[in-house]
């Protein structure tokens, strides 16, 4: 079917053929948009996002160094005045919190990229191409996860430099990194969903305003035990807190105490929360993406 359609060849005003590439012939290899294109197309989309980093090294550097700056700021500026319930070094307490914060801030990266594409019509361009439709999102996901992993590596370096250590072996440390990236993966779908809802990169400021309290209203910077009762409960039940607490447990860092059920079940909850977020926001994102066609 694909081979039977004659494709006119556009020519220059001079009459020289311009399309020396036989485009429909290239497509004849398989149904356009077929499933077997899902992976190659996703890789092409991933490389597009990687090319962004190459072309904007300053932005990438700022993005990677901003959380490092926060670690230093909180570690040294406030760290001296902080006493942890249950004892322990504040900076060792802070670093796993900052890892999780970096994952949370990743939501803004996702939001900015997806909403810019949607607002500029680039998403529609992709949707008009014979590519696998899923690749638009999977390419984004792979690139964002790579960026998150790179960001985490930089943060680990900064943590080590200020005296943070994983105390319980590389295996448990890797498990903790896995949980952090799982959180980032879950937040990816929140970012995509929000971006498809508002379709306006200018709303990034609003997202930042939402993300900041979400990050601070957790156990990342201070132990919920030191907060007023209700606030401590909210902070402890913040999904971010479970990942942070699980990280502290797996790294063997001070955990700032915490007798609540949620604090006692940090590691399983650090799996449950992200899966719950995915279960809600993945279908919402897919539905929203499909609704672009309605």
């Amino acid at each position: 079917m694909t081979t039977s359609t004659p494709t006119p060849t556009p020519t220059h005003a001079t009459g020289a053929p311009v399309a020396s590439v036989a485009p429909t012939g290239a497509l004849a290899a398989g149904a356009p948009g077929g499933l077997h294109w899902a992976i190659p197309d996703a890789w092409t989309m991933t490389r597009r996002n990687l090319a962004h980093w190459v072309r904007q090294p300053a932005q990438v550097l700022i993005g990677l160094l901003f959380p490092v700056m926060t670690v230093l700021l909180f570690g040294y500026l406030f760290g001296g005045g902080m006493t942890l319930p249950g004892g322990g070094d504040y900076r060792a307490f802070l670093v796993p919190g900052m890892f999780a914060m970096a994952m949370l801030f990743g939501l803004e990266t996702t939001f900015a990229a997806v909403s810019t594409d949607a607002a500029r019509g680039v998403t529609d361009r992709f949707r008009s191409l014979p590519m696998a439709p899923s690749a638009v999102v999977t390419g984004r996901a792979v690139a964002d996860m790579l960026y998150a992993a790179a960001g985490l590596a930089v943060m680990v370096g900064a943590g080590l430099a200020i005296g943070w250590r994983w105390e319980q072996g590389i295996g448990r440390a890797l498990a903790a990194f896995g949980l952090l990236l799982l959180l980032r993966f879950a937040l990816l779908w929140v970012g995509i969903f929000l971006a498809l809802v508002v379709e306006s990169p200018e709303m990034l400021v609003a997202i930042q305003i939402l993300v900041w309290p979400l990050g601070f209203l957790s156990n990342a910077f201070a132990a919920p035990a030191t907060m007023p009762g209700w606030l401590g409960t909210v902070a402890a039940w913040n999904p971010l807190s479970s990942t942070v607490a699980a990280g502290r447990a797996l790294f063997g860092n001070p955990d700032g105490g915490g007798e609540s059920w949620i604090a006692q079940h940090a590691v399983p909850m650090a799996v449950v929360w992200p899966l719950l977020i995915v279960a809600v926001f993945f279908p919402l994102s897919v539905r929203r993406y499909r609704r672009l066609g309605r």
Partner: peptide, 25 residues
């Protein structure tokens, strides 16, 4: 849809191109 998409070009109301990449990219 896929068969149609393999045979059309679309130029929308705004220049739907990636601002960060080069024209060639």
């Amino acid at each position: 849809g896929p068969e149609v998409r393999a045979r059309i070009g679309l130029v929308g109301q705004q220049a739907a191109v990636d601002e960060i990449l080069s024209g060639r990219q």
